[in-house]
Write a protein that binds this DNA or RNA. Structure first.
Lengths: 339, 339
DNA sequence: TCAAATTCTCAAAGGGCTTTGGATGCATAA
DNA sequence: TTATGCATCCAAAGCCCTTTGAGAATTTGA
């Protein structure tokens, strides 16, 4: 059943039927009801491809996922983010396209996306401190929102970010309040904007208490389990091990725990751990949380970012939307007073 | 630049230009070269929407991701799978659509996908022992392949599965060879086909050695870290704790380690652990692997499944393709002789 | 009552591609 | 010379919708 057939049945023109169905005002109420009922009765659904061709809009959004061959970690946060965003897209009738591309073909991919009008907008993940994707997308006039933001230039585009600086400051302060003074930072890769800000938060907490920042206590790597393990193992074997650790992810924190326990020590007693918790669905701890953490749901972020993007697509005149979310501090069993 | 403009420039008809570009034989070689060069020169790319509309094919594939509100875990395997599949799709010029839908709207979603011809095929994830999606898709005549397969009926559709039965048998045998006799199984949810088969493998290994299956050593749940932790904690506090554990995922295995260590015991010494390892990119251990495991890359599976699906779409006459992959046994540091 | 303003409806023109069903020109074969 | 086959190329129909620009019908205001 297509529009032509339906309008023949109704003895109306295609125009009228189309307008009736799309809620345009220039069609009478009785006509509209007749049309809508007939559409339901004959199970009419407009063809997506035809609609797209006619309107030049795709009602689709892309997420470009770079694949780095050397450093081939796939972001474990991705699935939760996608789940949140996907729900929202579905609610608004948008499609979600995932493009997996080699790291150095990203630019080409975005250009192609913009040229072909295959999608109405994109979401940019994990921006670097200086990220070429942002000026590129501005140039291409492809609507976009950034999950995170970019050091310095963060005014003329839409983004949603967690307040990484304040949350790490808060995490550090929490440990300082417990009397810890030697606090290690197991940060993410510091070329990433979020990690850079987290470090600033950590450092400013220390400095405000008149403490010095000890570079030998600061680490930066992909936030995986063995990273936490290896660093902690090393730290615990030094003469002057820290009494507390701030980590950038629960996975890394689990590595810290494994190392601590392997040394016959106890987390929260011999070493306190505060972690950033993205509330990944597969790393949830029921009951009293295992880790004291600053937490902010990445799934919620995905959902909200999708809304922002759709809003930008539908109302480009509105200007950029920017949101800075504060993370919650949740006290778990991984912290205790300094001994 | 569209086809009409390009053909005007070339003084050819749209037909000829289209045919030249799509490799049809009824166009002369010199003409073809002329056309291809002009296309490059003027940066001509056919419009996707128009192509789709004209051909009735979308060159897109969907993955339907159900969201269960109660049990809201998002599969951590998903991102690696998608990464593998996505690379392949990109290589073949296919788009990947992710549809996140509430659990009980899946059927509707598949129907809609089939009706609207928005995609040329779908991949079915994580089949249950009895999975309604499979007969549904057969009915809808929407090409599909299954990651895993369905107990019993596994002949008339395409699938790719790891040999879960043999790999768990192998894992169990490995422990038996080390002298372990009380071996716990921390399985996934046993409504899932894969988990069911894993249990069969585990049981058959025991039975073949004349051992009995002790139901109090068998557990079934989502494969998360606290699951491993909780079960192990409980097991270790019994009178007769097992000397070895087989788990269904590295995440769960990490929970086992945490519990063992917390009890002041040592993995591979006081309790041996063999896990199934999907080679998730964010759970990789460099050097000598932490865990003895049976492993099979879920990313590779994604990649191959995408190939199979595309093949089925392009050559539906070929009939179903079925592949059963054997997992590798990798010896790590988590196993040792029974004491 | 007539003109003006509203309301409703339509035919037709896109949007950009593929594909059908011929037409044309030319070389080969009878 | 005429018929046959081949290699090239084309005009136009079709895919299915949205939107423009106008016309017809109805209502309103003076």
């Amino acid at each position: 059943m297509n529009l032509k057939e339906l309008s023949n049945i109704l003895n109306l023109s295609q125009t009228t039927v189309s307008r009736a169905l799309n809620g345009y005002p220039e069609v009478g109420e009785k006509t509209r009801i007749r049309v809508i009922e007939a559409a339901r009765k004959y199970n009419y659904h407009p063809s997506y491809s035809a609609k797209r061709l006619a309107m030049g809009r795709s009602h689709a959004v892309a997420h470009v996922v770079p694949q780095n061959p050397q450093h081939s970690m796939i972001n474990p946060h991705f699935s939760d983010f996608i789940a949140g965003a996907g729900e929202t897209y579905a609610r608004y009738g948008f499609e979600m396209l995932i493009s997996v591309v080699p790291y150095d073909e990203q630019e080409q991919c975005y250009r192609e996306l913009a040229r072909s009008r295959r999608v109405d907008g994109v979401i940019v993940h994990g921006p670097y401190k200086e990220d070429p994707r942002i000026p590129l997308l501005e140039n291409l006039k492809l609507p976009f929102v950034v999950h995170g933001r970019m050091e310095g230039k963060a005014t003329h585009y839409s983004w949603l970010d967690v307040n990484n600086r304040s949350s790490f400051k808060r995490a550090t302060n929490f440990l300082l309040d417990l009397g810890h003074e030697r606090i290690a930072l197991l940060n993410g890769v510091e070329e990433m904007d979020f990690a850079f800000r987290r470090r600033l938060g950590y450092e400013s907490a220390l400095l405000e208490r008149g403490l010095t920042v000890d570079p030998s206590l600061i680490f930066s790597a992909d936030m995986v389990e063995p990273y936490g393990y290896d660093v902690t193992k090393k730290l615990l074997s030094t003469e002057h091990p820290p009494s507390a650790v701030v980590t950038s992810s629960v996975l890394t924190a689990l590595g810290v725990v494994r190392a601590v326990q392997e040394c016959g020590l106890q987390v929260g007693h011999d070493l306190s751990v505060v972690t950033f918790d993205d509330e990944l669905s597969f790393l949830q701890y029921p009951g009293v949380p295992l880790f004291t953490s600053v937490r902010s749901s990445i799934k919620d972020a995905g959902s909200r970012l999708a809304e922002i993007l759709i809003d930008q697509i539908n109302h480009p005149e509105k200007g950029p939307i920017q949101e800075l979310w504060e993370a919650d501090l949740v006290v778990g069993r991984s912290t205790g007073p300094c001994r």
